[in-house]
Computed example of a mutant assay.
Amino acid sequence: MFSLKVIDKNERTVAWARGEEEVNLMVARTYEEGDRILLEISKEGEYAWVQFDDALGKNLVYLTGIAHYKIPFGEKRINLSPKAFSGNKHLISVRKAKDFEVKSYRNLALNVNDTHENTTCFPHAFANVETRGEAVFAAKNAIDGVTANECHGEWPYDSWGINRNPDAEMTLDFGREVEVDRIILYIRADFPHDNWWKKVTVTFSDGEEKEFSLKKTGCGQEFTFEKKKITWLKLSKLIPSPEPSPFPALAQIEVYGTDL
Rank of each mutant, 00 (worst) to 15 (best):
R18S: 15
S86C: 13
N113L: 04
D54Y: 04
F225M: 04
R164W: 09
V94I: 11
D8P: 02
R95D: 01
L56V: 01
E40T: 11
L25A: 14
G57R: 08
R164Q: 14
E179W: 05
P242W: 10
P192F: 09
S104V: 02
G19A: 03
T171H: 12
K228A: 01
F85Y: 15
F126E: 09
K228W: 00
V200L: 12
C121N: 10
L56C: 03
V6W: 14
C121A: 06
L60G: 05
F85E: 14
F204N: 08
V136W: 07
K198Q: 11
D259M: 03
E117V: 01
D54W: 05
K215L: 10
N163Y: 11
V61K: 01
R36L: 08
E226N: 15
V61I: 09
I143W: 07
N88H: 12
L238D: 07
W16Y: 15
S245M: 05
G161A: 13
R164N: 11
D35Y: 12
L260R: 10
A135D: 15
C121T: 09
N195D: 09
R188E: 08
V136C: 06
D206Y: 02
H90Q: 14
E254K: 13
F100G: 00
K228L: 03
V94K: 08
E154Y: 02
T131P: 01
L250H: 02
H193K: 03
K43Y: 09
N10P: 02
F52D: 00
H124S: 05
F100S: 09
R106K: 12
Y69G: 04
R12Q: 14
K43T: 12
E179T: 12
E254L: 10
A97W: 07
N149V: 15
T224S: 15
L250G: 06
I230S: 13
D190R: 08
W160L: 13
E44D: 05
E211Q: 13
V112Y: 08
C219I: 06
N141R: 11
E101M: 00
H152C: 12
G153C: 02
D167L: 13
L250W: 05
E20I: 13
V23C: 01
W49R: 04
A135P: 10
F212H: 01
T217S: 14
H124E: 03
T171K: 15
T30Q: 15
G34K: 10
Y62I: 07
F225A: 03
L39C: 07
K9I: 07
G45L: 04
G207L: 13
A139F: 05
R18T: 14
E11L: 11
M26G: 00
W197Y: 12
H68P: 00
L110C: 07
S86L: 06
V112G: 07
